[in-house]
Computed example of a mutant assay.
Amino acid sequence: MTSSTPAAGTLPARASVPFSRLAAQWRVPFTIVVLCLLPWILPSQALAVNVLIYGLFTVGFNLLFGYTGLLSFGHAAFFGGGAYLTGMAIAHFGLGWFPAMLVGVSGAGLLAAVIGALSIRTRGIYFCMVTLALSQLVFYVALQAYGWTGGENGLRGFTVAQADILGLFTVNMLDPTQKYYFLMAFTAIALWFVSRVLNSPFGAAIEAVRENEVRARACGFNVERTKLLAFILSGAVSGLAGTLSALHLAIVPLDALGYHTSSLVVMMTMLGGAGSFFGPFVGALVFLLIEDVFSLWTSHWQLIVGIIFILFVLYMPKGLWGTLMARLSRTERDAP
């Protein structure tokens, strides 16, 4: 009989931590470290702020599309809605920056609850079209409510020059570096929240709905309630990105509610990798870099973006970051 006891002077081999678990544990710190370095790596701080804001917007959209499997063509309603509500709270009601942000995020979440309740009972292309139609309805309301939203000219006149933090210190919002890290602090909180959601039983539920809705229902999940809650959380995170955009620009253009913004976040998600945590920021960075570089060469830079997007869909459907993570996981599985 042979014994499984290790020989004297030898140590038992340590069990290796699976790559997927390691990535889940470190995804938030890794993302925050990269975001901290962005202003010093990219050509301009303006580009870094846009990557931050649109990356967070894409994180919100990815929560619905990448993890729940619902493709929405109307997420501009939540991004633009959060931005408009924040701007109106400051411009028309004289609220401070933080109460205005709460108004923007909660308003976007409420709007997502209404749109989600009307759309989640549809599937496939019908879900896409319902979300697009309801988003365009929000766009039309903002266009007509000129006294509140500025109509075609957008909302203006609510510059936040400084932000007082609990009376302890003041952030100069006119300083690009201070403003970037101020906005990044809220992005970091949102990333931590999304990560906790994904690691919770609810996170497992939304992924079960994505993989097989019929089987999830048979296992006892309330599919409609799960979809609705995911829709609301996605809308709230997208609304937070809109509030940060409003504080950054001190204006809210009507295009923030347009279908172009909804298509933009879909492209960023696909470029970075749907269903990946850091992918949204990679997608936002790639898209904005392409826009920043090729718009200097030609006014038809959208054509180049379209060609690149088609190539990604055909040959790299998991996106840049998603493909990298898949290859690392495959390498780990194939290792002896």
Rank of each mutant, 00 (worst) to 15 (best):
G80W: 12
C219S: 12
R156A: 02
P39W: 06
V130W: 02
Y146I: 14
Q144G: 01
G319W: 06
V282Q: 04
I189E: 00
G258V: 14
A77I: 01
S44L: 07
G273V: 07
R217L: 01
Y315E: 00
M129W: 03
F139I: 04
L168K: 14
R123W: 04
D334Y: 05
M184R: 00
T58Q: 12
R27Y: 02
V286M: 14
P99T: 08
G150V: 08
L63T: 05
I41M: 09
L285Y: 04
V194S: 08
L52T: 02
F281M: 07
A7F: 03
F139K: 08
N212E: 01
L247W: 13
A89F: 03
G283I: 03
K227F: 09
E213K: 09
L324M: 15
A77G: 05
V114H: 02
I125Y: 01
L56K: 12
Y259I: 15
V313H: 03
A117E: 00
T149M: 04
A256S: 13
S135T: 11
G74Y: 07
S299I: 10
A216R: 03
T243E: 02
L328Q: 11
F277M: 08
E224P: 04
Q144M: 02
G66I: 03
V286Q: 05
H260T: 15
I120N: 09
R217F: 03
A274G: 09
G306P: 11
L11Q: 13
M129D: 05
G96A: 13
L328C: 10
H248M: 05
E332M: 15
A218V: 05
P39E: 03
I115P: 00
G279Y: 13
F19V: 15
E213N: 07
T226C: 05
P43I: 04
